[in-house]
Design a protein around this nucleic acid. Structure first.
Length: 430
RNA sequence: GGAGAGGUGGCUGAGUGGUCGAAAGCGGCUCACUGCUAAUGAGUUGUUCCGGUAUUUAACCGGAACCGAGGGUUCGAAUCCCUCCCUCUCCGCCA
């Protein structure tokens, strides 16, 4: 959530800033006006309450019974007035909060300006695009031939966009978890496994229940709970209503959870295989840090993502995401895209976001400033470590050989127990 | 799921309708004293919001709200009533 005071005191600035994200300035002005109206009502209400409190305390110290009764009856009408005014004030407050919660985070001053995905900028490329002297297979084919992925059976059991992962693919996933944990624990990250169900109000506080995003979430009405789309969603609120000591920061987590996405609105897109699925496992990095350090922290998380991609030796590019393409909660965002040989293009496997104080204000995560002794909001950042399905696709496709086998990346060999995964004899390459 | 107990300030823990924002203790902070990583004494010590004054200062004054959450009763609620959530104990079930 944006700081209402920022809109109150710098309407122009917020309008200019959010127009970079495509927000209509009128929406911000509407919030400004609602805030003004709310504060007027609130002032009025509080004055009336003050009067009520004053007379009430007089009543308690009055011995004279008739005088007492007089004062009590005098308050009856005020009471009704307060009630109706309170209703008006509450309604306006709610309206204000709703309107405010629909505004995305302000983009960083240095964020890349752009109108959409096409304006995102490649800022770095790792490794040349690999050349294959044979017709490459896609991950679906490889998954079938090596008996690693089964989407057909999953479709019967759970529907489209589900999958079974088998054999070496499973070992690779657990291996990826091991190498990531090893590296990140050595960097001071705290391993964490969060809940995958989350209450609606907390989800909203994380800025993840805005209308269009909401549609992508699984919801369980009977228990009024959502399934998380990422470990991020429940790792953040681990520090709900929490005040950090300055010495605790930065506080970094490496979380593992299954992620659930309805993929509403993406029908017909990437329907084959496991690129876009309803359920997948993901390792996610999450940082809480001092405001002045969040830019540095953002780069740090990106550098770790790159480090792990390089450990796997997968060709990738780093993309700076432009203002109109970045996430609702983000001030600045990078994506890492891995080369997918079968599609002859880079596809997103990671994202890395600095949400500044936007989510922190929502969940009320603060720190106590040593110098001023005041509480300020921390900055919160999230970054993909490994989205298992997509990283597996990248590994399988980039390491395939002419004979249909797949070479296991060196760092994963001790976990997979072999250097190369051969096609199963009873499966023919189609 | 059944039966019972309970949720109060950083912590422990009083408080069952009227100066209770809340006793007491611990902790924290400030000062004094002690020549020593401490003892003692005195004082101080919650958060959020609104308004005003002041401003290179993150201060002061006034007000409102907060005793798990949300409603209700009342002139007035931490205290009474209702709903929900959570924690603990016992039983049942279960990985």
């Amino acid at each position: 959530m944006i700081d209402i005071k920022l809109i109150r005191n710098n309407l122009d600035y917020v309008q200019k800033s959010l127009s970079k994200k495509g927000v209509d300035p009128k929406k911000i002005e509407a919030v400004f006006n609602l805030d003004k109206k709310y504060r007027e009502l609130l002032n009025n209400l509080e004055n009336k309450k003050a009067e009520q409190n004053k007379v009430s305390s007089e009543i308690s110290s009055t011995e004279n019974e008739t005088l007492k009764k007089e004062k009590i009856s005098g308050l009856t009408s005020l009471k009704a007035e307060i009630k109706s005014l309170e209703e008006k004030t509450d309604a306006t407050k709610k309206e204000l909060q709703t309107a405010l919660s629909l505004l995305p985070n302000l983009p960083d001053e240095d964020a890349l300006l752009g109108e959409g995905e096409e304006d995102n900028k490649v800022i770095k490329t790792y490794k040349d695009i690999p050349k294959f002297d044979f017709d490459v297979s896609d991950h679906i084919q490889i998954g079938k031939n090596l008996d690693l992925i089964d989407t057909e059976q999953a479709a019967k059991v759970s529907g489209a966009r589900f999958f079974y992962l088998k054999n070496e693919a499973v070992l690779m996933e657990f291996g990826l978890i091991q190498i990531a944990l090893k590296l990140l624990i050595s960097e001071g990250f705290v391993p964490i496994i969060p809940p995958v169900l989350i209450k609606p109000d907390v989800y909203a506080k994380m800025g993840r229940l805005v209308s269009d995003e909401k549609e992508d979430k699984y919801y369980i009405p009977k228990d009024d709970l959502y399934l998380v789309g990422s470990a991020e969603h429940t790792i953040g609120p681990f520090h709900l209503e929490y005040t950090f000591k300055e010495s605790e920061l930065p506080k970094r987590y490496i979380g593992f959870s299954t992620s659930f996405r309805r993929e509403a609105g993406s029908h017909g897109k990437d329907t084959k295989g496991i690129l876009r699925v309803h359920q997948f496992d993901k390792l996610e990095m999450f940082s809480f840090c001092l405001p002045e350090n969040s830019k540095k922290e953002h780069q740090f998380l990106l550098s770790l993502q790159e480090k792990m991609m390089q450990m796997l030796d997968i060709p990738y590019q780093v993309v700076e995401v432009c203002t109109k393409d970045m996430g609702f909660t983000d001030a600045r965002q990078y994506d890492i895209e891995a080369w997918i040989p079968s599609q002859k293009k880079y596809r997103e496997t990671h994202s890395c976001s600095n949400t500044t104080d936007f989510q922190a204000r929502g969940i009320n995560a603060k720190f106590k400033d040593q110098k001023t002794k005041k509480k300020e909001y921390v900055h919160m950042l999230n970054a993909t470590c490994f989205a298992m399905t997509r990283i597996l696709i990248a590994i399988l496709e980039n390491n395939q050989k002419k004979d249909g086998s797949v070479v296991v990346p060196e760092v994963l060999r001790e976990y997979v127990g072999k250097e190369i995964i051969m096609p199963k004899k009873d499966v023919k390459k189609e």
